[in-house]
């Protein structure tokens, strides 16, 4: 494992924990898209079905379990415990517009036409666009709490670091996977606008608000 891969995993973990803590400490999930969180729970579930059939390392297995557990806990906090604070009115992105094309594409473009492989491919495609309901919510309300911005920055950085990891693996091991690579590029591109706002505003101590 190279440093980019490790930092990517760490960044992903930090994002997930920031979100859980934010909801738990403020007793509120306002400004958070429950729909994006449902998509992430689906992503982890369909990607990590090999959890018990394909052992790689203790690190790998524990991270998978942590990611899955945290994503379900987040969905529970939003739709269960702190439901009263959930922003139903603004979180209106139609997730079937992401789920259906990802599923169709996974059937058409994959490495192997087998159930586990199609589900893995589906999770890669879905993850690349799963943040859209959250970005849509931020654009609809025109602002994001600073802690939500940190969450989005850590989550966006994770795939960017994975891209560097894949670049590294390509040159050192001749390893590449076009499905993961192209999806990873799309996923990172979707955050570009946000990265710009984060660096130009949030890091200078201002709240992230969109120009009217």
């Amino acid at each position: 494992m190279n440093v980019f891969r490790f930092l990517g995993d760490l960044s992903h973990l930090v994002a997930i924990v920031i979100l859980l803590l934010k909801i738990w400490k403020t007793r509120s999930c306002s400004g958070i898209s429950g729909r994006s969180q449902i998509l992430f729970a689906i992503v982890f579930t369909t990607r990590y079905l090999d959890l018990f059939s394909n052992f790689i390392s203790v690190y790998n297995t524990s991270m998978k379990i942590v990611y899955i557990t945290c994503s379900y806990a987040t969905v529970y906090l939003i739709y269960g415990k702190f439901k009263a604070t959930y922003d139903f009115n603004h979180d209106t992105f139609r997730i079937e517009f992401l789920l259906v094309p990802s599923a169709i594409l996974a059937f058409l473009v994959n490495h192997d036409f087998s159930p586990l492989e199609i589900l893995w491919t589906f999770s890669i495609y879905l993850e690349s666009v799963a943040i859209l309901p959250q970005l849509f919510l931020v654009s609809k309300t025109g602002e994001a709490e600073t802690i939500t911005s940190h969450y989005l920055f850590a989550l966006g950085s994770y795939r960017l670091l994975y891209l560097l990891n894949w670049l590294w693996r390509y040159f050192s091991q001749g390893f590449y996977d076009l499905i993961a690579l192209l999806s990873g590029i799309l996923q990172t591109v979707l955050y570009c606008d946000f990265f710009y706002l984060y660096i130009s505003k949030v890091l200078k101590g201002k709240k992230l608000s969109l120009p009217a």
């Binding site: 790998n60 390893f175 076009l178 993961a180």
Partner: peptide
């Protein structure tokens, strides 16, 4: 064949 899935990744 180097076109393997990065299944060792997360």
């Amino acid at each position: 064949d180097n076109l393997i899935n990065p299944k060792d990744e997360l």
